[in-house]
């Protein structure tokens, strides 16, 4: 891509990636969550691939690292679901505990990050999973199509 696209991508990508992480971390008090934030983060990776080419992005973002991140997110999610098994599968056992345990009263409030029980942790797990999954899909498809272009 041209120099203008590369410069703009360099400027914008950190902001996009940071915004994706913010959407993941604040999923339980503001609009958003693991899926949406992960999609935002993966769109930042897609911008990098468009601007610099899949070959250069692959040098620091390997496919097997992404697979490991995705499996780790899945394991964390399933583990959190099993951790509540003393009461029920997917029971929110952290409400009222010292970790993410504040319980707000019914009605509008300004928002407290230390609430939600297992929901913020599950947002992080699903966010890892979606970041890795969508980035891997975009990266692999871009690599395949660029190789195809070189062959012909």
């Amino acid at each position: 891509m041209s120099k203008i696209v590369r410069t703009v991508a360099k400027l914008l990508t950190p902001a996009i990636l940071l915004f994706g992480l913010y959407v993941i971390m604040h999923g339980h008090i503001t609009p958003g969550g693991g899926f949406q934030g992960g999609a935002v983060f993966a769109s930042g990776v897609a911008l990098l691939i468009v601007a610099f080419g899949a070959g250069r992005v692959e040098q620091f973002l390997k496919e097997h690292q992404l697979s490991m991140l995705e499996s780790g997110g899945g394991l964390l999610f399933i583990g959190l679901a099993f951790a509540g098994l003393a009461t029920a599968f997917f029971y929110n056992f952290l409400v009222g505990s010292p970790i993410f345990g504040h319980v707000p009263a019914f009605g509008p409030n300004p928002g407290d990050i230390w609430t939600g029980g297992t929901i913020p942790l599950m947002n992080v797990a699903v966010g890892m999973k979606v970041i890795a999954g969508l980035s891997a899909i975009v990266l692999v498809m871009a690599l395949a199509s660029s190789k195809q272009g070189e062959d012909e």
Binding site: I29, T30, G33, F35, Q36, P108, N109, P110, G111, V130
Partner: peptide, 26 residues
């Protein structure tokens, strides 16, 4: 929107169809 942070009131649209839409989009 069914989000209580700085909400103007407690008359909210239904959250379950929105959650299922999220599932469907992914």
């Amino acid at each position: 929107a069914p989000i209580f942070t700085n909400a103007p009131g407690t008359l909210m649209v239904l959250p379950v169809p929105q959650a299922l839409t999220l599932t469907s989009i992914v």
